[in-house]
Design a protein around this nucleic acid. Structure first.
Lengths: 231, 231
DNA sequence: TGTTTTTTATTTACAGTGTAAATATACATA
DNA sequence: TATGTATATTTACACTGTAAATAAAAAACA
């Protein structure tokens, strides 16, 4: 027997495979993701998965894309939940808190995105760039708002050379220092929240610094104090 | 034939195994570390390694310990290269630059320490704690110096509860706020340099922010400005 | 309806991994 | 010299991703 009769194997088998993969990752980490394990749980054979994903790396890539989307949505939702002028700093803070909240809820997804937990997997940057950019769009958006209000102190911010932005952000006019400043500040803020969050969820913070929430809120405040005038 | 005649298999075979492991890691990343690959390169069989390391994880742990030691030495050397009173800020800066320099020279070692690149490996924290602490001893040392000079602004720094430090740092008297403040500041500084460096060496910084050195030096300066009075 | 084509799964197979168990030999010691 | 221990090998097992051949269900077309 080569193929079992169609026992309503839902048409969205790719989605079912992804769900099983997430279940594995959530349970025991991204490094132990196994095509055979997924097939075992789904009651199919491993090579069947190859009808939907050319290889394991392709599956990992779509998982990363989904994670980025969820991560970005969470921040955008948090930002949009506080609309209106005059609330820019609250939006920034809400976005920052959403960042850590998502990471703590989905530590394995966070490490899937920002770590290298899958042996031999090299992320296809070109394919991932759009979702990467979207995942920080909440941050760049709110920083842009604050900049437009004249509340950003751009003193000393290192700007990248314009050439390196070619073909990367089409909406960016040459020499548009506003956009470059906003992006640079976003990078600096991002690296700070990422540093603290990644150390926290990997358990690398020594026990005496265990109150991650307090450290994180302090960091958010000092970030605002550094970049925003008259905070 | 079960055992070849002793062809001067140096007594430090564990060291030779470690060297081969580092060679693999440096070449193709920690996730592709393979006992069989090591054995192949050394002209022995894989199970022979089990005479020196009980399993793969034990080998990984000693590699991590060595990496931490190298990482800590590099920072301590940088700090000690600028002796004398009045040079405290220079020492802090030198330590910070040494942090990034080591990470850029040994990106795979850095990820071995701070990432989760080896599938299924869970770091034995109790065993690693001493080298972890030593690897940040340069930072805590110089911050302690600056604190002793009364140049630290402790305003708002979140302090951990004293109980959580029990049995962790024996030299710490109960309620010794100085030590707690120094440690907390060191954590905050560490998370910032780690955030930037880890994003840089994993290629996660978008192309427009590619001048890692400039971003890093800006970050070091803003760290000093935040925590040190009259900078 | 019957025939052909395509889709989707299976089986089989191969090379790779860590590691447990049994075995054999070199070396050190009694 | 005989014995015991240390250190290696061989063999084996369960696991991984994935390529190739195969078979049957479903769809398309006559």
């Amino acid at each position: 027997m080569a193929r079992p009769t169609k026992q309503q194997q839902q048409a969205n088998l790719p989605e079912i495979i992804k769900d099983a993969a997430w279940k594995q990752i959530t349970g025991s980490g991204a490094s132990s993701l196994s095509l055979r394990g997924i097939a075992r749980e789904l009651g199919i054979t491993a090579p069947a998965i190859y009808n939907y994903f050319p290889d394991r790396d392709a599956l990992v890539t779509t998982l990363i894309i989904d994670a980025y989307a969820s991560f970005g949505d969470r921040q955008l939702d948090a930002m949009n939940s506080i609309p209106g002028p005059g609330k820019e700093l609250d939006r920034l803070r809400a976005t920052g808190l959403a960042y850590r909240a998502w990471a703590l809820e989905h530590p394995h997804r966070y490490m899937l995105i920002f770590g290298n937990p899958v042996p031999g997997y090299v992320p296809p940057m070109q394919e991932l760039m759009p979702v990467m950019m979207r995942s920080i769009s909440a941050l760049t958006g709110i920083i842009g708002e604050i900049y437009a209000l004249g509340l950003i102190n751009p003193h000393g911010i290192p700007l990248p050379k314009v050439e390196t932005t070619q073909g990367f952000c089409d909406t960016m006019a040459k020499g548009d220092e506003t956009m470059l400043t906003v992006l640079s500040i976003a990078m600096l803020i991002w690296s700070r929240v990422h540093g603290l969050v990644s150390l926290e969820i990997t358990g690398k913070l020594p026990p005496f610094a265990h109150d991650g929430a307090a450290l994180y809120e302090f960091e958010l405040e000092s970030i605002a104090r550094q970049f925003i005038c008259l905070y």
